[in-house]
């Protein structure tokens, strides 16, 4: 067994520098690496590029980095829940690349899997395809999209073991698996870290080979963005 555990979030973020590119898992506030985001805020890392489906809300998730103007560029598919984001984008303070959601996921997975580029129909004939190579296959048009290049992938899982094996819960899985192994260094924070051998190998979603550092997060707020419930009769 190759051990991937580090003591805490500080050790897990060793080597991060101003100007780097980070991938961050999560969909909305679901499945985001909360403890790592706090560490990035505390260290006041500057001029970073973030690849993340969303940008958090004004006072949680990546919104915390936005508020402190730490983000130079965001690469996302949907940023509608964050007023500060919209303000920084429209004023030109921050650069934004909007990417179709499936393309975003595939550009992560391609980076992980050694595929430099791929063709997708998403965005053909729209401004997303401007300046990109297009090609016809079987009578349909496709756009060439490139794998991302990132310095760190920051992901969050439900359970993990010392070997870096990960299990996700519910829809908190989302972008996390595709980002594992996609950056030069992948850091996983988990709600529960267990010794090797405790997780059933049949149930592992992401094998530890894609993970360089793993730690148990100190606390999880797991904020709900849109609470919707039914009344009991």
């Amino acid at each position: 067994m190759i051990k991937k555990t580090v003591a805490n979030v500080r050790e897990a973020c060793e080597g991060i520098k101003d100007g780097m590119t980070f991938m961050l898992g999560g969909f909305g506030l679901c499945g985001i690496p909360e403890n790592i985001i706090s560490e990035l805020v505390n260290r006041n890392i500057q001029n970073v590029t973030c690849i993340s489906n969303n940008a958090g809300v004004d006072d949680f998730g990546l919104g915390l980095l936005l508020k402190k103007h730490q983000i130079k560029k965001m690469i996302s598919s949907y940023v509608g829940e964050n007023a500060e984001f919209e303000r920084q984008m429209l004023s030109g303070e921050m650069e934004v690349e909007l990417v179709p959601q499936g393309t975003l996921a595939q550009r992560c997975e391609a980076a992980r899997s050694g595929i430099p580029a791929f063709y997708t129909p998403a965005g053909y004939g729209t401004e997303v395809a401007e300046g990109k190579e297009t090609r016809e296959f079987h009578g349909k048009m496709y756009v060439m999209e490139k794998a991302f290049e990132a310095d760190f992938s920051f992901v969050k899982a439900w359970k993990g073991d010392e070997a870096g094996n990960l299990i996700f819960k519910g829809t908190a899985r989302n972008f996390n698996p595709a980002m594992c192994g996609a950056g030069k260094i992948t850091v996983a924070e988990v709600e529960e870290l267990v010794p090797a051998g405790e997780l059933d190998p049949n149930q592992i979603h992401i094998p530890g080979i894609f993970i360089q550092r793993i730690f148990q997060g100190e606390k999880y707020e797991k904020r709900i963005e849109q609470l919707t419930v039914r009344k009991r009769n």
């Binding site: 598919s77 179709p100 998403a122």
Partner: peptide
């Protein structure tokens, strides 16, 4: 309004 396309471009293209 610049909120992003989310999954809409993938959905309609496919």
């Amino acid at each position: 309004m610049v909120k992003g396309m989310g999954g809409a471009m993938d959905l309609v293209a496919s």
